[in-house]
Design a protein around this nucleic acid. Structure first.
Lengths: 96, 96
DNA sequence: ATTGTTTGGTTTATATTATAAACTACTTTA
DNA sequence: TAAAGTAGTTTATAATATAAACCAAACAAT
């Protein structure tokens, strides 16, 4: 009856990150950190997990002399997010 | 921007249990076990957590000679579920 | 020019959580 | 009455999340 929820997305911080990235072309590490309220360490770990899964890309560039980590959602990431939302619907609308 | 998600509800099994209980007056342990596909041990632990939080009641009765554990959602549980769904919405509809 | 401070992270240790294996107790069936 | 099934609980372990500690470069002050 209840299909399993993608454990990679069923995590508050990773879900917030994906949610943020869906709306934008790309986002910088400090911006994501600020928007999610996460600590840098936690965010670093969770971005790694999403990148390893192929849900996002993490590009290390420079902004002038300073390092700049740019994150973007991948097509697979978008697909996984949509599937997650669809699956979750069965948990949230019990009457339907 | 992202409000915290009730950690008690942001768990696959506990969310499934709550979802089940919303539709019914009460449900027996074996029924919940079957519907969620959980192991008895895991279910027992998670029901305890929901009961401790006051989200459900767990009543130990008998059905003839056999023990029968009946679970029901409480008004606080229903409220918490609704709040959770509302909060989650911000994570799921990033464009809105 | 060296010292301290900020920025931008990563690594790692710890706390929390989920999960299943092992166990208990009682009932039914052979 | 022995074996098997039902209905769970307890407990040990695996997985996960999280923050503390750390690192490196850049910038600012003395």
């Amino acid at each position: 009856m209840f299909k399993p929820l993608d454990p990679l997305l069923h995590s508050e911080l990773r879900l917030a990150v994906m949610s943020l990235l869906i709306g934008t072309e790309s986002a910088e590490f400090p911006y994501i950190k600020e928007q999610t309220g996460a600590t840098a360490g936690n965010l670093s770990v969770q971005l790694d997990k999403l990148a390893t899964a192929g849900y996002i890309t993490v590009e290390k560039t420079f902004k002038g002399k300073r390092p700049c980590t740019l994150c973007s959602i991948t097509p697979e990431g978008l697909k996984a997010f949509e599937t997650y939302v669809e699956t979750l619907r069965d948990y949230l609308n019990p009457t339907q």
